[in-house]
Every structure is written in C-alpha cells, then in structure tokens.
Design a protein around this nucleic acid. Structure first.
Lengths: 154, 154
DNA sequence: TTGAATGCAAAATATTTGCATCTTC
DNA sequence: GAAGATGCAAATATTTTGCATTCAA
C-alpha cells in the first residue's frame, strides 16, 4: 500500500519498513492492541526489531494524530488507528476490547450536551462499556470483578 | 465516627486505626486519590505506616465493595468511596479528577439503552469527560494533548 | 490463641529515557 | 550530510507479592 507511505510522509514522518508495518498492522486491526501485542506481531516479519522501536513508533504515530491511545482500566495502554472518538466494550472475563458497532452516533452528542451544565470546558468523552462478550456470556468463564447491575430502570 | 467501624466490621474486615483512617480519608475526599496520595495523607497521622499497608488496605476495601477503583487513562489507579457508577471529569491541564456534579441521572440509562443492540451483556459503563477545569480553562496552562473538538454538532 | 493486618523489602509489569549506530531524505 | 529512526540497555513508575512481626477479635 503506497497509501500508508503517503500518510506517514504527509505528517512529516519518515517511512521505514518497520514503521510502515506497525501502522499497517494497527490500521488493519480491530483488537486495540497494546505496544507489546504490536511488538509480538511485528517480530514475525522483523525478528530483530526491538520493543523500543515499536514503543517509540506508536508514540510518534499518536503524537501526529495517526493513532489514538487509551486505557480501559487495566493500566495498559492500547492503540487504535481509528482516531475518531468511539465507544469501546471491555469483556470482564476474557479482557477483549471491541468497538461498539452499531452504536448510535448521536449518543455521544447527547452525552456531551448533558455535560454542558458543567463549569468545565469539555473536549471529548470516553465511553467504556464493561460486561461479557458473546463468547463469555452465559459461560462459566464469567467472573464477578465489579458491581453486578446498576442501571435498574432499563 | 463509630459508623466507619461498623461498616468495616459488617464486611468482615478488622478495624485497625490505620484502616479506619484510610477509609475515612477516602470517604471524605472528592479528589479521587491514588494509593500514593492516600499514603502521603495517612503518614501525617501515622508516620510509620508503610505504603504497602495503604495499598493492601485499599485493595481489600475495593474487594469488599467499599471502594471503587478506576483509571482515567494515565495508568494510575484512583480510588473513590462513592461506589455507585458516576461520570468523572479529567482536566487535560492540571490532571485533577472531579465528579460531574449535576449530571443528569438518566443519561447513563440512556447510554446503556443505546448499547443494548450490542451482542454483549453490558454490566456497567464508564463515562470519562476530558477537557479543562474552571481554573485552567482560558488560561495559558492549557495544553494540546488530545484532539481538539470532535463533537461538531453541539 | 488464631487469623488477619502491618511493615519492610523485593519482585513483577509496563512505561520511558539514553545513546551509539544506521537509514531516510 | 543532517535529522530522524532503530536497537540495545538501563532507568522510572506503579502495582503486586513474600514473609516475619504485631494486633484485633
């Protein structure tokens, strides 16, 4: 893909084979990988790459707006090539982090509007949903590591 | 406050002066302190207390449902004696973490309902708002460490 | 008395920095 | 050639575990 090369150059970033692969893997992934995950994947193509290179690369890509970094509450940074704000789902059992597909776009604006009474200047909001993914729900893999049900009225 | 003693005993936790103070400080705080913050505060009363005792205590209190632990994206755990789910505000400039006071209660249910089309079993949702607090907004302390404005329509 | 809590130390995990060498532009 | 990227190593920051001693029930 020449596209990725251009995208990197457009941001003023130099194009190296490692960097190109790191960004390609992230842009093709829906798994919200950690730096370590990316490292393990990139090693398959570049066995001599260092974790440090992966780390610095994802930091650069984030700094230049090509990646989004976030943290689901497990104290590990995760990266996402989809830089527009969008809600995530975190499975309390297997730990997977997914995008909330089919989540209505207007909800975020609704939420932001609800926050507009705050004396703070809101820039963006993170919506993180926690629960059990289709593979874990109903299975014995479920664990109780947070309060059970809070919503009540829905 | 005898109240705290009873609360701890009711959960089957032993009452020690250190533990009582740790919980009292947290229940009286709105600052969402880290374990280190709590440690620094407790030392003023118990100079010989170890960080480890504070750490293990807040872990126990969380395990028994007396504290909520979360993480705002800075890879440090914060603790809150208000264990019911509620939205938080994180200042991009000074780092303070506040409750979103006056935030409409029904928004969380609205959000949860919007998530109900997901194949996942949602247990709870975290709403984290990022921006500039009243003290930092408009001041030179503002920094750009995330995308500027995303909402568009509000 | 007994099991849990405390305190000191060290291990584990993840992030970040330093620096010499190499590569892209 | 110069600025930036890479790779190896070590430093930082935080969380977590081990264990002997102390204390609450």
């Amino acid at each position: 893909m020449v596209y990725i090369k251009d995208l990197l150059r457009k941001k003023g970033l130099r194009v190296t084979p490692q960097r190109e692969l790191i960004y390609r893997l992230l842009s093709e992934s829906k798994a919200h990988p950690t730096a370590e995950h990316v490292y393990q994947e990139v090693r398959k193509t570049f066995p001599s790459i260092s974790f440090n290179t992966v780390y610095k690369t994802v930091r650069s890509l984030e700094e230049w707006g090509l990646l989004q970094r976030f943290n689901t509450g497990e104290n590990i940074y995760r990266y996402d090539a989809n830089v527009s704000p969008h809600p995530h789902f975190i499975c309390l059992s297997c730990g997977r982090v997914d995008d909330m597909d089919n989540f209505p776009d207007d909800v975020e604006n609704y939420v932001r509007k609800a926050a507009s009474t705050s004396p703070c200047e809101i820039k963006f909001v993170n919506l993180h949903f926690y629960g059990y993914c289709p593979l874990c729900r109903g299975s014995s893999r479920k664990i109780n590591n947070k309060e059970e049900d809070n919503g009540g009225s829905d």
